[in-house]
Structures are given as C-alpha cells and as structure tokens.
Design a protein around this nucleic acid. Structure first.
Lengths: 335, 335
DNA sequence: CAATTCATTGAAATCGGTTTCAATACAACC
DNA sequence: GGTTGTATTGAAACCGATTTCAATGAATTG
C-alpha cells in the first residue's frame, strides 16, 4: 500500500484540469462549474489525496497552526492540574477549528524569550497563546514588537493593551470570603499568593468582602504562599498562632497541604477550622473532607483563548479584548 | 521596530554572495571560505535573520517537528498526572534536540484514526509519538502502512514489530508484592487494571512474586479497576470482605481512593492494612499516609521516546527497539 | 607543463501548493 | 450587431528556503 506521493499536479492531470482549478475546488472558491468541481472531487476522493500542509502554508502564509507557550518552571507544570485542564480546553477548541497546536514549555525566563523570538521570526505559527500571570512580562514588549498575533491567559502584570483571558479572581475572592462571613465565622484568615496577578486579585476580593461586611483587616490573619501543596502546609502552620476559625486558601493544592497540617495538629475540618479553596480541580475532590471551593472555568478559558486568537488572526484591526470569566462557589464539606 | 521581512535573498545581497552560499553557511556545510563565512554570519547576526521554518521544511522535507498523539478519553488526561509528567519529558528532550512539538489529543478511536491519517499525509511532521497501552491498536496497522516514523509509549496490545518505550511493569509488580511478602503480610490483595497492558503486566508481576515465595493465588483477593481514584475507592470496598492485610494497588490514584475508603471504615494504614502503590506521581505524596510505591521513570520514558524517534528518523533501516525502563521501590509510610 | 583533483561559488531547478493575471466563452444589454 | 459584464479556466509567478549541477580557479600530480 505504498502511498506514492500525490501532488496537486497529479490530481490535475487525472482530472484533466490545471493545478489552479484543483486548488480552487479544494478551497471552495466560487465560479467553478459544477461539472468540473464534481470531477475533481471524485478524483480527490478516490485517490485519498490530501494537500501538503507545508506547501499550503508557504504559499498562503497561513499555517492553521497555533502555539501554546507555557513559560513556567518545570515543577508546577508537573504538579498543578491547572495546566492539563487548560491544555485540554485549548486542544479541543483548536481541533474544532482545524488548527494544529504546537506546544512550548520553557523553564526559564531566558528560554522563554528565545522561544518567542524564534516563533516570531520563523513563520511557522499563525498566532500564540501564552500563559502569563506569574511573571513580570518582558515578553509583552517582545510580542508587541513582532507581528504574530497573541493572547495571554491570565492577566499579565501591568498590561495595558494586550488581549487576555482570565477568570474573575476578584469576584472569586469576594465570593469565598463573603460565604465564610455569612456562615458566621469570625476570624477569617487568608492564605494567598503574592507571586502573580491572580493571587493579588483574590486577595483584593478578600479585602473587599471584609470591608463590605464592616470587618477590619487583621494582618496576622494574612499569609502568602505560592499555590503549591507544600507552601499550603507551611503557611497554615504559620497561621495557627493567630487562631483563625476559617481560612480562605487561594488554591486547592494549598488547601490540601493546609488540611494535612491541621490533621497533624488534631484540628478538624470544618468543625475547628473551616476552609474554602480556589480552583475546583482534582485536589478539591481528593481532599478529606472534600473542599468547598471557587470553581474557575479553566477549560473555558482555554477555549475562549483559542477563539479570541483566531478572531485576532482573521481581523487584526479589532481592539484587543480583555475578558474575565465568571467563577462560582461550590459548596462541599470543608466549610 | 517593524521587523521587515528578511529573506535569504536579502542576506545574500547584503553579503554580496548567492542565496546558495548563505544557505550553506547556515547549514554548516564544508567547503566555504572562512572569509565568506564570517561575512555572512556577521550580516545574519546584525540583522537578526532567522530562516523561515516552513520554507526550509518544504525544500528539505525535514520539518524538525514531531507530534505527540494522545488518543485518550478526556477524563484521564485531565486527571491523571501521568500525562503532564510524560509531556514534560517529551517537550524537554524535543527542545534539546531543536524539535518543535505538536500536540494532538483525540477523544475517540475514530478521531484518533482521522488524526493519524491526516498526519500521515500532510507532510508536516517528521515523526510521531503515540501513547498506546490501553487500546487494541487498529492504529498500528495504519501507521505501518504510512511512511512516517513512529514510536509508541507503553506496549500496545499484540504488537510484533513496532518500536515502543515502556516501563518494566512486571518487575514493578513483582517488586511491590515481594516487598509486602517480606514484610510479613499474609493476605496480600491486588487492585489491578484489566484495561491495558501495563495492568496485565503488573498483575503478572504480582503472580510471579507469590509463586516465587510459594504462596497460592487467592482469587478473592484479586479485583480490577481502571487506575482512577474512584475505581480505587470502589474496588477497595469490594475487597474488604476478603479481609486482606495488605494491598498492592496498581496506581497511586487508585491507592488514594482506596485509602479514603479505609478511613471511612475506620481502618488505619498501614496498621490495619498496608498499601503499596504504583507510579510515584503527585498522588503518592498527597496521600495520608504518604505512599510506599513503585516509581516509574515517566519523564525518562518521554525523553527516550523522543530520542528513539529521532534515531529512527535519521536511520529508518535500523530494526525497531522495544525498551522497558527499570522501576524502583520507594518506601514511605503506607507499608 | 599539461592533466587532474579539489575547494569554492553561483545559477537554476525544486519542494507543492496559492494567487494573480490574462484569455476565452457565453449571456445580457443598448 | 457591437459592447459590456461575468463565469470559468489555464499559464505563470510566487512563497523562501535547499540542493543539484556546472563553472571557476587554485593546488596537486605525473
């Protein structure tokens, strides 16, 4: 079954038309007689011909290929269920739009810059999606200087004009905290993250909820980790002397770690300390008790990023869209 | 900073040589005078010129791009930390070899077939890596019929001649079971998986260890799940009437679920029932107590898959390599 | 010194498509 | 009937590199 190489020329010969006509048929151009169209399609079908992606790209300067750049340290891509979920949403929507997805993981800032430089200049990709959020973005300048469309996932620090898709972290923080207040908890702590914009926003939401309910901010109830399980365990340790009766923990992974710490101290969740997490990814269900948490539509963020990117590719003039998707409180057993 | 489009022709003009010469310099061909070489490189450096990847591919029919195909149902890619870890190893090694990685997730058998058909015929990829293991592979025939090099990850059912990289699941099963035997446990159960070759192999290892130690196989101590946390929880429930004092659970995620079931029954790990898992991915550390488990070098599997694939691409004649990487027992608190 | 080899370079073909431009044919209009 | 417009098609240019082939000149050989 030696699939001998089929080119558009061979198809043209078989159908007794020119290459140009075959190309037009395949690209669904108008002004082709039904007869010719049928003849060409028949041959294409019979032979199983498929256009060479590379040649199409070169000629049309549209590759139908987009990139996903994840400039993150090895550890978190590994551990954090955030990335698989996101990737899932992206690949799914990319495929639905007949886009091939290229994946770039970068382990250092420098490597990220190099990766982006190479993408910008080698003409392979129609556009790129970049997970931002936790770095002060030198990349943004680089990207704006190039002419490859891009969309950030998560709000980059200090961005003015770049398109991004994020979740509504402030609303999430407020929702979580307000829920704890309404449940009657008095000393509501937060384990936040000060390494990224989402962490900042969730903390802002926390503050806003306290304020709205006339509660003062108690600095001793505020600590910051880095979203990882380990940091959750440690920060909870730091928090115990302040005797909180509830904690808003800004990632489920940290919540998992925190619960372990509480168990070690023979404190029960939620009887002794209530917990609300953030993410609603797998750790939320793995926790014992299962977490009351804020659900972020991570998959949708990925989907929307692809759609937004494709829109920009098609219509580069449009002003950039900056979107924050709504979040939702999921009540389970931990609060 | 309008990066006006640089082509090899412009570089050639600037350096006052022909396109061909520039190409040779850039590809490090021999027989170029040092003087010309230096002149060209200087211009290239000054202008920041980079070759157009697409054009190179078309002309040389080498894209330096490989694909990773994951034909898996949505759920597991999402949940299972196996895939991120694997992907990590693959992207890392791909990058080190200056390969771009394209990612394809397929949610159904049919979609997988279509994806592979398209890869096989559109000339974009130099080769592909496919995660196998849990499907009876119609894909294998399809791949063998095409002329794109490939490597499987995990041993496909019934493969004869296809190259694959796997971990030594039989040895792992034997190691885990033997350890439990040596620790003096008497009624050693297994929660296996009968949906994939790795599950079969781990079960074979379990049987072999029993046999070597002169223990009879007790059917009531053998149940099968599907590697997921939920199935772990359920199968453990099924297992309790048989009163095991130790369980070899063939994935850490299942072990996590199983431990939850045990806790619900007020059974303690490892005092009442000891557990050995398999994988040594994040769930192993999230479990309480942390899992004694079999470490699979998943990242290495990914790396090796890339290297093997590149070797095949360079040298298609070589007979296919089928490799099983060694595993290792990691002793923690659960047994 | 003529003949041969070898390093160095450029012109042109090539990869497999898309797209522009011009040509033709046929219908519609004044 | 001549003019205009429009649908349909093909020839050829083009995308931006690599690679083949031939040409040149210098170095080596007999």
């Amino acid at each position: 079954m030696a699939t001998q190489k089929l080119t558009i020329q061979k198809i043209a010969d078989l159908a007794q038309v020119s290459k140009a006509t075959v190309s037009r048929v395949l690209n669904d151009y108008p002004h082709i007689s039904d007869e010719v169209k049928a003849r060409v399609l028949k041959i294409v079908h019979e032979t199983g011909y498929r256009r060479n992606h590379i040649a199409r790209t070169l000629a049309s300067s549209r590759s139908n290929m987009i990139g996903l750049v994840i400039p993150s340290d090895a550890q978190s891509v590994f551990t954090d269920p955030y990335f698989p979920t996101l990737t899932q949403g992206i690949t799914y929507t990319a495929k639905r739009n007949e886009q091939t997805l290229a994946l770039f993981l970068c382990e250092s800032e420098e490597e990220g810059g190099e990766t982006i430089a190479s993408i910008l200049s080698n003409g392979l990709l129609d556009g790129i999606i970049i997970t931002a959020d936790y770095k002060d973005y030198a990349f943004e300048k680089q990207l704006l200087a190039g002419n490859v469309p891009f969309v950030f996932i998560g709000r980059p620090f200090d961005t003015v004009c770049s398109p991004y898709i994020d979740t509504d972290n402030q609303a999430g923080g407020e929702l979580a905290t307000a829920y704890l207040i309404e449940q009657g908890y008095q000393r509501i702590a937060i384990i936040g993250s000060d390494k990224n914009t989402s962490g900042d926003d969730r903390y802002i939401g926390y503050q806003r909820a306290l304020e709205k309910h006339g509660r003062a901010l108690d600095e001793s109830l505020v600590v910051f980790g880095d979203y990882s399980m380990e940091s959750g365990a440690q920060r909870m340790e730091d928090l115990l002397p302040a005797k909180p009766d509830a904690v808003f923990i800004t990632s489920d992974a940290m919540a998992l770690g925190a619960i372990r710490t509480l168990h070690r101290h023979n404190l029960r969740v939620p009887e002794d300390i209530a917990i609300v997490g953030f993410d609603d990814l797998s750790p939320a269900l793995q926790a014992d008790p299962q977490l009351t948490t804020i659900r972020q539509p991570i998959g949708d963020v990925g989907s929307l990023a692809v759609e937004t990117l494709l829109e920009i590719i098609r219509n580069p003039e449009r002003p950039p869209r900056q979107i924050a998707l709504p979040v939702e409180l999921i009540v389970r057993a931990s609060a």
